[in-house]
Simulated assay, not measured.
Amino acid sequence: MSRKLAMVTGANSGMGLATSIGLAKAGMRVVMVCRSEARGKEALAKVRDAAGGDTAELMLCDLGSFADIRRFAAEFNSRGDALDVLVNNAGVVSLKRTLTKDGFESMIGINHLGHFLFTMLLLDRIKAAKQGRIVVVASGAYKAGRLNFDDFNLTKGFNVAKGYGQSKLANILFARSLAKRLAGTTTTVNSLHPGAVATNIGVSRETGFGKSLHVLLKPFFLTPEQGSETALHLALSPEVKDASGEYFYKKQAQALAGKAADDESAERLWKWSMEAVGLKG
């Protein structure tokens, strides 16, 4: 009997790498999705060292490019593999307002829209699994976010907290909306808050800006391994095989506050997202 297959976005470092190692150690084959080939190869070697040589493979994808997401999905889907677990982990924090290749503000464009299109294009392969699980790494920062329906790209009054909070709120609403659409199937979708994890998110690779702050605060953060525990729980545990549309923290379902529980906003976001990424239905 072949091993189950998992896929992790942003698998080259931090929580994504820790999650990939955890899934591989649990006996799954892991597709590590990374933007950088060099960093991806380094991470792949770490997973293979930790869990065995044939446990993982690297596939490249830029979640800031709809064209590259479509290329990736076509390549993966052509293999015909059932995808048992998808962990949407990749995320960016943009200290300055930047745009994706498709012209969207980077945090809403990558954290939400990139993963929205990525998930929708792989959905048939997830539904082909005996019990497919989609795990969306969100954040408690959603509480400070709001959906700017008139200006998702934050052309006016941009700040990093506003952009990141909006994207993480969108993650949760996407998970809830998709769970409703998958009701009656064997595929589940849940989101989670990993806790305050010490990763390189928000640190500029070009300038190193933010690195000293991370060093200063690191003793107060969870390790990536600790931060990955809830994602691994949702991906692997039989305890949550029937849970869907829920939001988890420390392996426990949590009540959602205000905007994240708003069904009308969730449907408006779904409609906008479908149009933004060029999907119909």
Rank of each mutant, 00 (worst) to 15 (best):
A138S: 14
F149D: 12
F174V: 01
L147A: 02
S228Y: 01
A255W: 04
P224V: 12
N200F: 01
G245Y: 01
G163N: 04
D151I: 06
G195M: 03
G210D: 09
V203G: 04
G140H: 00
F209P: 00
E206T: 14
V240Q: 03
Y142D: 10
G140L: 10
L169I: 08
K130G: 13
L192T: 06
F248A: 05
H214W: 12
E246H: 04
A231H: 07
P219Q: 11
T199D: 11
A161E: 12
A198D: 13
R181M: 09
T230N: 09
V197T: 11
A196R: 03
H214A: 14
S177F: 02
A196Q: 01
D242R: 05
G157E: 12
S212T: 10
N171A: 02
I134N: 09
T207S: 13
L169C: 07
A170Q: 11
F220P: 07
Q131I: 02
G195S: 09
P219V: 14
L147F: 01
V137L: 14
Q252D: 01
G157Q: 08
V189M: 10
I134L: 10
K162V: 15
A243C: 04
Q226H: 03
F174N: 11
V135Y: 05
Y247E: 02
Q226K: 14
G145R: 00
V240K: 00
G195K: 04
I134R: 04
L216S: 08
T188K: 07
K250I: 00
A235H: 00
V160F: 06
S191D: 02
A129R: 03
G145Q: 06
G210M: 06
V215P: 00
K211N: 13
K127L: 11
R125C: 11
H214Q: 12
A198G: 13
I134F: 10
G227N: 09
P238E: 14
G157K: 00
Y249H: 15
T185M: 05
L236T: 08
V197Y: 03
